[in-house]
Simulated scan of single mutants.
Amino acid sequence: MVDPVTARNWGYRGLYVLLVLLLAFVQLLPLGAGGGALPGADLITALTFAWVLRRPAYVPVLLLAPLLLFLDLLLQRPPGLGAALMLLGSEILRSRRDMSRSVPFAIEWAMVSAVIVALAGLNQIALGLVMADRPPLGQALLRSLFTAAAYPLVVLVSHYILGVRTAAPNEAVALGNRL
């Protein structure tokens, strides 16, 4: 028999991959408005950060790295830069998950927002260093702020619809910290 914890972890990993691919497909659809439209939120980033803080076992690094590299290639972004930045952000948040479990949601939201804005700044710096085309700084900051604003909605959907909840401390001990 398969361990129920292992089966649940793999089920949610598959769900995460499906959600990310669905969001990437929606990004590829020609639904965008004209050139002066406001940028949309990066829901893949919000989803990844919400799941990393709630159940890090559902989004391990060995799953994130190839998936995010595939997204860089699919969405025609500089190969590896977005993946590296997302991995950096997710690992920063993953290292603080024990602390974030005991703080109010507003503090968690501020922490995630700071990471999102910092990643947007690092992206601008990296693209500037290699003299690649980069989006205007204002547009990149707006996108990161919209992503941070969408984070609570992503957390609500993850919690109430998808069932990705933060583990209680006694549950973490019972599972041997295999969250």
Rank of each mutant, 00 (worst) to 15 (best):
Y12D: 05
W109I: 07
W10V: 05
L63E: 01
R134I: 07
L15D: 03
L119G: 07
L141E: 03
P104D: 09
V59T: 10
M86C: 11
F25E: 03
L38Y: 08
A57H: 06
A150F: 09
T6E: 02
F49H: 00
A120L: 01
P104C: 13
L22V: 10
N123M: 14
R97L: 07
P136T: 10
L31N: 13
P104Y: 10
L73D: 07
Y58S: 01
L73Q: 11
Q124D: 09
S144P: 13
L85H: 07
Y160G: 05
I161N: 13
S113Y: 10
M111F: 13
V103F: 00
G128H: 02
A24C: 13
V26Q: 07
I125A: 13
D98A: 15
G40D: 04
D42E: 10
R178C: 04
G128S: 05
F25A: 13
V17H: 09
E108P: 10
A24V: 11
G34W: 02
V5R: 12
F70D: 01
S95C: 06
A148T: 04
G138W: 02
L23I: 03
G40L: 02
L63H: 00
A126K: 04
Q76D: 15
R55Y: 01
L53F: 10
L18Q: 07
L64K: 06
F70Y: 11
V155R: 01
L156Q: 08
S102N: 13
I92V: 14
I107Y: 08
L62S: 12
I116F: 00
L31V: 15
R134G: 02
P4H: 09
A140N: 03
L71F: 05
Y12E: 03
A132L: 13
A110L: 15
A118G: 01
L179M: 14
S102L: 15
A149G: 08
L87K: 00
F49M: 07
E91S: 03
P66S: 05
R13V: 14
A65I: 08
D3Y: 04
V5G: 01
V154T: 04
G138S: 02
L137I: 09
Q76M: 14
V20T: 03
A50H: 06
R178M: 05
D42C: 01
P39A: 06
V5F: 02
F146H: 08
Q27L: 12
L137M: 09
R143M: 12
V26W: 06
A118M: 15
V103E: 04
E108H: 02
L38F: 06
P39I: 05
G80M: 02
P39F: 05
T147V: 08
G80T: 08
L162G: 06
Q139G: 13
P78G: 14
G121H: 01
L137A: 15
L127A: 03
F49I: 00
L156N: 08
D133H: 15
N177C: 11
A84T: 00
L156R: 11
G80V: 07
R143Y: 03
G40T: 11
V173Y: 12
R165D: 02
G89Y: 02
Q124S: 15
I161A: 15
V59I: 09
L137G: 10
S158C: 15
L141C: 12
R96S: 14
V2G: 00
L74R: 01
E91A: 03
M99H: 13
A148R: 05
L62H: 04
Y160L: 14
Y58K: 02
